[in-house]
Amino acid sequence: MASVAARRVLRDRVRANRAASTQRRTVAQATRRVRTGARSLVTHIIATGADRKTVEGVADALRTVAKKKGVKGRRARIRRSFNGARNIVKTVYRYTRAQVAQIAAQYKPRKAEYKAVRAALIAA
Rank of each mutant, 00 (worst) to 15 (best):
R32S: 06
A16W: 01
R13P: 13
A16F: 00
R8A: 10
R7I: 01
A19Y: 10
S3M: 07
A38G: 11
T22C: 09
Q23T: 10
A38W: 06
V4W: 04
R8E: 12
N17P: 00
R11K: 07
T22R: 15
R33T: 03
R8N: 01
A5W: 05
R25D: 12
L10N: 03
R24W: 01
R25H: 13
V9H: 03
L10I: 04
A28P: 00
R8S: 07
Q23A: 11
N17G: 07
T22L: 15
N17D: 10
R32P: 03
V27I: 15
A19V: 14
R32N: 05
T36M: 15
S3P: 07
R8D: 08
Q23I: 04
Q23G: 00
A19P: 08
A30Q: 02
R7H: 06
A30N: 01
R15C: 00
L10E: 15
A2F: 11
V27S: 06
D12N: 12
T22A: 15
V4S: 08
V27M: 08
D12Y: 00
V4E: 04
R24A: 11
V9A: 10
R32W: 02
T22E: 15
T22S: 15
R33N: 09
R15V: 08
V4T: 08
A28W: 02
R25E: 14
R24H: 05
A20H: 14
T22M: 14
A20V: 11
R7P: 00
T36H: 15
G37W: 05
R15T: 11
R33E: 14
D12Q: 06
R24L: 09
R8H: 02
G37T: 05
R35Q: 14
A30K: 00
R24N: 11
T31S: 09
R11Y: 06
S3I: 01
R15I: 05
R35M: 07
Q29E: 13
T31E: 07
A19H: 14
R32H: 11
T26N: 13
A2N: 08
R25S: 15
R18I: 03
T31K: 03
A28M: 09
G37D: 10
A6H: 14
A19S: 14
A28T: 02
R25W: 13
V9T: 10
Q29A: 06
T31V: 02
V9N: 02
Q23K: 11
V9L: 09
R32V: 00
R24T: 08
T22N: 14
A38Q: 10
A20F: 09
V27E: 09
V34R: 05
R11S: 08
T26R: 15
R13W: 09
A20C: 08
R15G: 03
R8Q: 09
R33A: 08
A5Q: 06
R7T: 00
S3H: 13
R13Q: 15
A30I: 02
A16S: 09
R11L: 04
V27C: 05
V9M: 04
Q23N: 05
Q23D: 11
A30H: 01
R15E: 11
V34M: 10
A38D: 14
V27W: 03
R13H: 13
R33C: 01
A16P: 04
R32E: 10
R11A: 11
A28D: 13
T22H: 14
A2D: 12
R7C: 03
A38I: 01
T26C: 07
T22V: 12
R8P: 03
A2P: 13
A20L: 13
A5F: 06
R7G: 01
T36Y: 13
A2W: 12
R13A: 12
